[in-house]
Design a protein around this nucleic acid. Sequence first.
DNA 1: TGTATATATATCGTAACACACAGTACCGTG
DNA 2: CACGGTACTGTGTGTTACGATATATATACA
Lengths: 110, 110
Amino acid sequence: MSIEDWKTQIKRGTLEFCILLMIRRQPSYGYEIISTLEQYPAIAARENTIYPLLRRLLKEGLISSFWQESAEGLPPRKYYAMTEKGLDTLDAMSAEWTNLLNAIHTLKGE
Amino acid sequence: MSIEDWKTQIKRGTLEFCILLMIRRQPSYGYEIISTLEQYPAIAARENTIYPLLRRLLKEGLISSFWQESAEGLPPRKYYAMTEKGLDTLDAMSAEWTNLLNAIHTLKGE
DNA sequence: TGTATATATATCGTAACACACAGTACCGTG
DNA sequence: CACGGTACTGTGTGTTACGATATATATACA
């Protein structure tokens, strides 16, 4: 397994975590999420990954969606916002994430 | 997806990372690795997960193995140790991991 | 006989992410 | 008008790490 393959594995779960973090800050739409993630090579992902993921989060009720007109000449955007359930889940994820970081820190032996 | 399922996803890649970190500190054997991981619920895993993983790391040349007699009354243990290639890979992983942490920190908006 | 330590293997399933592809709509330039 | 570029939304199929469950082997000790 190359380091690139490993990066793919690392994204499992963390990508979902990152997207929820983004949406919690403020409602966002697919294209914006993809553009933002592009700035961070560690978790960059394309439409074929992001849209199915957003659809799943919608289906699970962690986020909600609404359409909004854009500035003139631009197609409408589908915004995603956090739900109560999403916030609860994100809190649980954050707690687990902290546990993971502590575990790694200890295993590093520092 | 429940939080338990998310924990499973998060282990992808991180479990491999953790095991390499452990073996870098000092050569270890399967049973000890499993026992140590049990102390950290975030990355706990059993034989059915750990042994195939160790076999994969061996096959990829990231770790090596050697048998060693145990204390009287115990069966011999198969120890795993880091290889040069494993160290290089671990360094690359650590760099990616740092990138990931930075990205998450920024996305959290702090 | 049963428990504990220790190292494995086999089969099957799940689900997240990746690759390739598809479609709509507007704009500016040649 | 055709073309490339940008903004925006998706679909279908494949790969593969990790998980559940079960089984196999061997030694020591109560």
